[in-house]
Design a protein around this nucleic acid. Structure first.
Lengths: 344, 344
DNA sequence: AATAATTTTGGGAGCGCTCCCAGAAAGGGC
DNA sequence: GCCCTTTCTGGGAGCGCTCCCAAAATTATT
C-alpha cells in the first residue's frame, strides 16, 4: 500500500499541509524542512494520488484525442501515427497525459450509441481537462456538443465558429501549388481526386485545385473531379471514374489515394508519369517508397499535433483569456518522379 | 456546474445512497423509485465524477498502453495503428478508457528521465488500473518495475517470468513457413534480415529461420544473417551488408524492412523476384501496394491487441485468481509475387 | 525593547463518491 | 394480528488531496 500525504507528514514530523506545499513547490517552506520532507518522499517513494488530487483541484492533467467514428477506417493511414507522435511529445513536455478515444467500426447504430456513451463518460465525467479533435467531418455532432458543454478544445483542421480554436495546414495553397506545378509542365487536362467533401481538408484542397485552374483561365470540367475518401480503395474507385475522361495528370488529395490511382492507371496500361502524371498530398513515408516516388505536398503533421497541444495547454492554464487561437501552418511541394520531368 | 449525486438525490426526494444504488445497478431499489431517479438523472444530465469515484473505489477504469522509448521511432510502422485499433475497440467493449504513453525521441538522457517521471506519475499515481506493454526490448527496465510494483499488465510479445502474462503471435512458426516456402522453391542461399535481437519477436523470427534450414539439413551461414531494426532504413542497410554474399532469396522479419531490401536490390540492378526472391513479415497494407506485391507472413495484429485487453480486463476483474495467461495466436503465409512463381 | 509586518506552520472543511451499518418498511407463516 | 425474515432506505465515515484561515514563529521597524 503506497504511502499517503498524511503518512509522509508523520514521518517527517510536519503537517499534511507542509508536505503538500513541498510537493507543489510552494515557496513558503523553510529550506531545512523542505529538505527533510523531500528525504522522506524519496525514501518512501511517495507519489500523490491522482484521483484525490483531481477531486480537490478539479483538474486531471489529462487531455483527450478524439478521432470520430467517420475516420476510424482511415486509421491505417500513417498520417495518424505521426500526428499522435507530435501530440504525445507535446503532452510529455507539458506534463499532461494523453487519453485516446477511437470509436468502434462495428455497426453504425451501435457505434453511435457507444460514441455518445463515451462522450458522456469521458467529458461529462471529467476524466479530461480538454480535448484535441482530429479531422472530424464538419457536420460531426461533437462540435456543437463541445461548444455547449464548454469543454476546452482544439481542432486539427477547422470549424466555422467563433469559439472554435484550431490549427490547420494551408491546404488551399498546397493544393494550388501542386496543380500549378502540373499546369506549368504543360498539362491541360488535370483531374483531381478529392478527399471527402464533408471535411474541411477535402474542401480546401479542391478549392486550391479550382484556384490554380482559374489563375490560368482554364474552365473547370466537373467530369475531371472525383470524390474519394482518403483511402487507397477510394483512390482506386475515383480513378476508375476519371479514366474515361482521359486526364493527362491527376492531383490526388492524399498519398494513399495517389497510390491507388497509380495502381488503376497501371492496370489500364498507362505509364506514370509518361502517360499520366500524378501528384499526392501529405508526404507520408510511403510516398517515397512507391514506384515511381510520389511528387506530393508536404504538410508538417507532427508540428500540427504539437501545436494543437500547445494551444490547448495555453487555453487550460489561462482560463481567463478569451483569446481565439487560429493557427495555419505552411505546406510545401516536394517534387519527385511521379509528375514527370521538366523535359516535357 | 454539473449536478452531483447529492443534488440528484434532493431532486428525486431520496438519499444519496439510493441514487448511488440506481447508478450502479444495485438490485435493492423499488422499481418506482428507480424510475423516478432515472428520470432526474436524465433531465439533469448527471454523470458521476470520475475522480470522486476513483478515490472511493480505488479503480479508474483506465488502462495504459505503453510503448517504450526504444520503439518510438517505429511508430510510423502501420503495425501500431492497427494494434491500437484492436486495443481501443476492446476497451470500448469493456467500458475502459485508454491512456497512451509514448516517449519522446529527443536526447536519450532526457528521455530516460521523462520515462521515469511518467512511470512514477502514471503508475504510482494510480492513474491506471493496468497496462498493456507493446514490443518492448527484453531488457527494458519496465518489466522488473511492473512486477515489483505489482501492477497488472499484459505484454504484447513475451517476457520470461512466471508472473508475466502475455499474448504473442507464433513468430517461430511464421518465419519457418516463410523460409520453408523459399527452400521449396529451390533456393539454397536464403538470407535473413532480422529484427532487433534484443526483442522477442526479433529472436523468434530468426529461430524460425534457423529451424527451417535445419529441417532441410542446410548449415546456417552467419554471413547470410543481418540484423535490422524493423524500419525501412534498417532493412536497406542490412540488405547492403548482405549483397556481397549473393543470396538468391531474403526473408525479412518485417514488411518495412522487406520494402527497404527491395529498394537496395533494385539499385544494385537485381530484379525481384527473378534474381532475388523476397518475403516479408506482418502483412501490413503496404505489403500489397509495393511492386512487386510482397509475399509475407500475416499476423493477426488487431486481434492481438484485442486479446491483450481481454486478458488484462479479466485480470483486473478477478483479482483473486493467480492464473497466468499465456496466449499465442497463429500466423499464416500469404503468397504474392515477390517470391517468384512455382515455375522455378 | 516593544510593536508591526512578514513568513511559516497546522488544522478544518470540503471535493463527490462508495460502502457499511442500522433502522424502516414490506412480506410470510401461524 | 403478531412475530420473524427479507427487502429497501438513509446517514456516517472515509478515500487522499487542496485551500483557506488563523496561530505561531520569525524578521523588520521605530
Amino acid at each position: 500500500m503506497p504511502p499517503t500525504l498524511e503518512e509522509v507528514a508523520k514521518l517527517a514530523g510536519v503537517s499534511r499541509s507542509t508536505v503538500s506545499r513541498v510537493v507543489n513547490q510552494h515557496p513558503n517552506v523553510r529550506p531545512e524542512v523542505r529538505e527533510r520532507v523531500w528525504e522522506v518522499i524519496r525514501k518512501t517513494g511517495y507519489q500523490p494520488h491522482a484521483a484525490a488530487r483531481s477531486l480537490a483541484t478539479r483538474r486531471t492533467r489529462v487531455i483527450g484525442l478524439i478521432i470520430p467514428q467517420a475516420v476510424t477506417t482511415l486509421f491505417t493511414d500513417p498520417y495518424f501515427p505521426i500526428l499522435i507522435r507530435g501530440i504525445a511529445d507535446a503532452c510529455n513536455a507539458h506534463n499532461y497525459h494523453l487519453m485516446l478515444s477511437l470509436f468502434s467500426r462495428r455497426r453504425v447504430q451501435e457505434s453511435r450509441a457507444r460514441q455518445d456513451l463515451l462522450y458522456q463518460q469521458v467529458l461529462r465525467g471529467r476524466y479530461l481537462d480538454g480535448v484535441v479533435v482530429s479531422s472530424a467531418p464538419l457536420d460531426d455532432p461533437i462540435f456543437p456538443r463541445l461548444l455547449e458543454d464548454g469543454v476546452p478544445f482544439i481542432i486539427v483542421g477547422r470549424y466555422p465558429h467563433e469559439r472554435a480554436n484550431y490549427v490547420d495546414v494551408d491546404n488551399v495553397a498546397g493544393a494550388r501549388m501542386a496543380v500549378e506545378h502540373l499546369l506549368r509542365l504543360g498539362h491541360e487536362r488535370v483531374a483531381t481526386i478529392t478527399g471527402p467533401l464533408n471535411m474541411c481538408s477535402g474542401q480546401d484542397r479542391l478549392e486550391g485545385y479550382r484556384q490554380a485552374l482559374a489563375a490560368r483561365g482554364i474552365p473547370v470540367d466537373e467530369d475531371l473531379i472525383a470524390e474519394g475518401d482518403f483511402t487507397e480503395q477510394g483512390g482506386q474507385a475515383a480513378m476508375r471514374r476519371l479514366l474515361p475522361h482521359r486526364p493527362t495528370a491527376v492531383f490526388a488529395a492524399s498519398d494513399m489515394m495517389a497510390a491507388g490511382a497509380i495502381k488503376v492507371l497501371r492496370e489500364a496500361g498507362l505509364r506514370v508519369p509518361e502517360d499520366v502524371a500524378v501528384v499526392g498530398f501529405d508526404d507520408i513515408p510511403l510516398a517515397s517508397m512507391v514506384e515511381p516516388p510520389l511528387t506530393t505536398v508536404r504538410q508538417p503533421i507532427e508540428q500540427t499535433g504539437g501545436m494543437a497541444v500547445e494551444l490547448l495547454v495555453s487555453l487550460l492554464e489561462n482560463p481567463g483569456e478569451e483569446t481565439v487561437h487560429w493557427v495555419v501552418l505552411p505546406t510545401e511541394l516536394v517534387i519527385r518522379a511521379s509528375c514527370g520531368g521538366r523535359s516535357r
